[in-house]
């Protein structure tokens, strides 16, 4: 496995977070599917959706960046990845994985539940940009 971490420093600051509703939902999904991970998609149709897979279902490669982990009580940390090329355009934003009512998202595990994960974004603040070597 290549070293895909964006930054090992500044553990207090993270590029990714999870909403309370999504966290509770991920606990339920983990009971069904075992440990989970996310890979952020691009392109059309369900593109721009965070895809949630059982660990090992999707092969992470050297082209991917490990954005960080979601820490949720009661389950293993959930790793979040994105392709490096896409990250170049996303690196100035902080991502929060949320969940909304919805239907279908590729092979992501949540869609049979009538819900769908969704990315909420905000611009990184100055402290975060500094921590992530962006200024």
């Amino acid at each position: 496995m290549p070293d895909t971490s964006v930054s090992d420093t500044q553990q207090a600051l993270s590029r990714v977070d999870v909403s309370p509703a999504a966290a509770a939902f991920l606990v339920e999904l983990t009971k069904q599917h075992g440990p989970l991970m996310f890979h952020q998609s691009g392109g059309c149709c369900d593109g721009s959706s965070p895809m949630c897979y059982p660990v090992g279902f999707f092969r992470i490669g050297a082209v991917d960046v490990h954005l960080g982990d979601l820490h949720i009580d009661g389950i293993d940390p959930i790793e979040v990845y994105m392709s490096r090329s896409q990250f170049e355009y996303w690196k100035y934003t902080h991502l929060t994985i949320d969940v909304v009512a919805g239907r279908g998202a590729g092979f992501s595990v949540e869609s049979p539940e009538g819900k769908r994960f969704l990315i909420r974004s905000r611009m990184l603040d100055d402290a975060e940009r500094k921590a992530f070597d962006l200024i």
Partner: peptide, 29 residues
């Protein structure tokens, strides 16, 4: 659903080709 029917179809050992229109992560998968 994709995870329940799409993935078993795409990974089925007895298909000879798979065609997909969608997004990049599922395309890679």
């Amino acid at each position: 659903f994709g995870v329940e029917a799409g993935a078993p179809l795409a990974s089925h050992p007895n298909i000879r080709k798979i065609a997909f229109t969608g997004e990049t992560t599922t395309g890679r998968l």
